[in-house]
Write a protein that binds this DNA or RNA. Structure first.
Lengths: 297, 297
DNA sequence: CTAATTGATTACTCATAGTTATCATTTGTA
DNA sequence: TACAAATGATAACTATGAGTAATCAATTAG
């Protein structure tokens, strides 16, 4: 079904939809009227719906036809823009950057970065893909992305890495928890709690880093839930399913029902790094890296 | 240029872009390798750019090719969604409504209307077109739109009209103008000012209505600027190019640098009306009209 | 050094887009 | 009422070009 559909059909359909007149449309398309009639009919069969109501001496669009007229017009226009942009890329006038990131980098960093970059290079197309640390490294090696934002300490030799943000950890507690900033001294106060942590599947090295925090406090936590999204953690904590530890940068102002305590005494930090492939030849990459690395981290 | 391009080419290109291997891709597409090679080459000629770098024993995407891979994938996906939606329309499961409006109706009314409607019929596609009063009437007669929002008193016989909002006028003055709510009594206080008004080209009947306001106050205003957008009026007034009169509904909360005085004493109102074609058979229309007309205006 | 892998080239064939000629139906008009 | 013009559908034919099989050239692996 709808596998024989070609652009030709769309062009023909749009011509008829505009003129509502097969002969005129055929003339405008430089083909014969019977040929046009047949193509439209074939298209109708193919899509499994009637595009036109043929009355004795007039042709009108069906409801579905009206809808498709608008959508196909948009679609062809978009395709044309796409091709023009591809030509710009081909002739080195502009380009695109494929960017991978772990969810936590989307909080503030990447939106800001894109806004800054867009000021100087408004034509560049960004393609954003949320992926975990491992996937980003693989994607860099295959040139599927040009640049990544990861929480990793170790990367392969061909991958370059530069830390751009060092974050302290924060405790996440339900709003009415007995411990708060005034009486908190040490993590060991919480050894009997159950914890909600980021899934090690998502970032191995982040997980071991967090576990080290507990080890340093002299206990191993009982882990009740593993999750991938910070918002799930907040929800679970709010509803008393456990408590958690997250990097400070994952905290935004408007999170209701939980409270945070900064763990500024412990040595562990979670580092957000830019990573890229040394052998990547994307001409836009050096400038983008300059922009990122020139920032006061 | 790029007029021979067909969906076939996109499908073939995407297959090769995914496999980076002509033979495997050809197999997957159930065609022979030479056929595939030729189609890709033809596509490259047609677009005027190289999609792949063919090395001795490996094929890689060019920058433009990478970009096109993403875009074409998106495009085909979108097209598929479009066709599925058209089928829903065809089988009467849902539909689309083409809606025309004068700019001033976009302020609050239409967004709210759409939000209300979407609650009950989330699948219906709205196609919004800003058009002046005359164009909307024509579009209704040609069934190019299903419903319109106009400021008109007279409409043709086949067009139905119902007033949904009656607005008083407001004076628009620069913030530091000597006249304000406390000392304003009558428009004739402003007979020596120059006025910025909506272009009669955009709405004849609105213009004559406004002129009647002045006539009733015993003077004809000197008109310094004509414009189509309310925001231009506010900007011009702010910068002391003149003062103006606008319908109250065009005023939003966050307009800086100007002040407004309601003209609640004068009899003129500017009416916003829904208009539709009696003979329109769009099955979604009656329900939409119900929703609009049931509202306390 | 041979065998396997891979994309390009060449010469063929066959499916189908497009053509010409014609029909059926309707509408406007003499 | 009859005749000419208009409009889309149908049928039979043609020719363009998508797809094929066979082969080549270049490279890599064992």
């Amino acid at each position: 079904m709808s596998n024989q559909l070609e652009f030709r059909h769309l062009r023909y359909f749009l011509a008829v939809a505009e003129d509502l007149h097969f002969r005129k449309a055929a003339e405008r398309l430089y083909i014969s009227q019977p040929g046009l009639s047949r193509q439209i009919k074939q298209m109708e069969n193919d899509l499994g719906l009637k595009l036109f109501e043929r009355h004795n001496r007039k042709v009108i669009l069906t409801e579905a036809g009206k809808y498709l007229k608008d959508e196909f017009t948009r679609n062809l226009k978009q395709l044309e823009d796409t091709i023009n942009h591809a030509k710009l890329i081909h002739y080195g006038k502009t380009g695109q950057i494929e960017l991978g990131y772990v969810g936590s980098a989307m909080q503030k960093l990447i939106p800001q970065l894109l806004m800054n970059y867009r000021e100087t290079k408004p034509d560049v197309v960004f393609s954003l893909k949320e992926m975990d640390n491992k996937k980003q490294i693989n994607a860099l090696l295959n040139f599927d992305i040009d640049i990544g934002f990861v929480r990793l300490e170790e990367v392969p030799k061909t991958i370059e890495k530069k830390c751009i943000k060092s974050d302290i950890f924060c405790l996440v507690l339900p709003e009415d928890h007995s411990i708060d900033k005034s009486n908190f001294q040490d993590l060991s106060q919480l050894k009997s709690e159950s914890f909600i942590l980021f899934d090690p599947e998502y970032s191995e090295s982040y997980y071991t880093n967090v576990l080290q925090v507990f080890k340093d406090s002299g206990f191993m936590p009982s882990v009740s839930h593993l999750t991938i999204h910070a918002s799930s953690i907040y929800n679970l904590v709010k509803n008393n399913f456990g408590i958690s530890i997250v990097p400070k940068s994952l905290i935004s102002n408007h999170i209701k029902g939980v409270k945070f305590i900064e763990l500024d005494k412990i040595p562990q930090r979670t580092n957000l790094s830019v990573v890229w492939n040394k052998t990547n030849r994307n001409p836009l990459l050096p400038e983008l890296l300059d922009l990122i690395l020139s920032k006061p981290n």
